[in-house]
Amino acid sequence: MRVIDTENWAWFLFEHDGALLLDACCSMSAVTYNYMIRLNDAERAQYESEGRSYLSQLAHAIHYSVPIAPNTQSIYQGRNVQQEFAELATAAVKAWRSQQLQ
């Protein structure tokens, strides 16, 4: 896994085995959490067309849909792959930050 891009305090974009994963920084009341989704074909095509601005819009949409809320209508509910990739993502961010300091 590697960091492709990031927007400070908003999202990280990772690549892992050809898949693109967006890790959005979200909050619900006093709770801050990350919500990571694997970009589907339509999202990936839109990212390839619109770039970073699309990822910011997508992270915003995830955040405001509150996919972790009990009675949510979020279209992102059930797409969280955070647990599956948490360790790899943490290692990738550490490596990326280390490179930024050099």
Rank of each mutant, 00 (worst) to 15 (best):
Q73S: 10
L58K: 02
E84N: 09
R44I: 03
V81T: 02
L22P: 01
T90V: 14
D41W: 06
A95L: 04
Y35H: 09
N80G: 08
E15N: 07
D41H: 10
R52E: 15
S65L: 00
N8E: 13
P67D: 10
A10L: 06
M28Q: 14
N8C: 09
K94H: 13
H63A: 12
R79E: 08
A59Q: 14
R38G: 01
S56A: 07
V31A: 10
I68A: 03
Y33G: 01
C25G: 12
E43T: 00
Q46H: 09
V81A: 07
I68K: 09
G51I: 05
Y64I: 05
N40Y: 09
N34L: 02
Y47A: 01
S74W: 06
L58I: 00
E48L: 12
S98H: 13
L88N: 14
Q100G: 04
L20S: 01
L22I: 01
R2D: 08
N40C: 06
M1D: 08
A24S: 15
A10Q: 12
L39F: 06
S98P: 02
H16V: 01
I37R: 01
M1P: 05
K94G: 10
Q46T: 08
Y76G: 00
I4G: 03
S27T: 12
M28T: 06
H16F: 02
H63S: 11
H60Q: 11
H16I: 02
A61E: 13
R97L: 11
I37T: 00
T6L: 15
G51K: 08
L13C: 01
A61T: 04
I4S: 07
Q99R: 12
N34M: 03
A91M: 10
S74E: 08
A24K: 12
C26W: 07
N71R: 13
Y54I: 00
F14H: 08
E84R: 15
L22Q: 04
D17I: 00
E87R: 03
T32H: 15
I4V: 14
G18T: 04
F14E: 07
M28L: 11
A42F: 08
D5Y: 08
A42H: 11
Q102I: 05
L13R: 02
K94V: 11
Q82I: 11
A95I: 00
L20P: 00
W96E: 10
V31N: 12
D23M: 09
A24V: 07
A24Q: 13
R2S: 05
I75V: 08
T90M: 15
M36F: 00
E43W: 01
D41N: 12
F85P: 01
E50R: 09
F14M: 08
M36E: 00
T6Y: 15
G18R: 12
N71W: 13
H63Q: 14
L55Y: 03
S49F: 12
D5R: 13
D23R: 10
N34W: 04
V31Y: 12
R2Q: 09
G18F: 08
D5S: 10
N71L: 14
A24F: 09
S27M: 13
L13H: 01
F14V: 02
Y33S: 04
N40P: 04
T6S: 14
C26R: 05
M1W: 02
G78R: 06
Y64T: 06
I37G: 02
C25P: 05
R97V: 02
A45I: 04
L21C: 05
L13T: 00
Q77L: 11
K94P: 03
E43C: 04
R44T: 11
Q57Y: 06
N40M: 06
M28W: 14
A91K: 14
Y54P: 00
G78I: 01
N8V: 10
E43N: 05
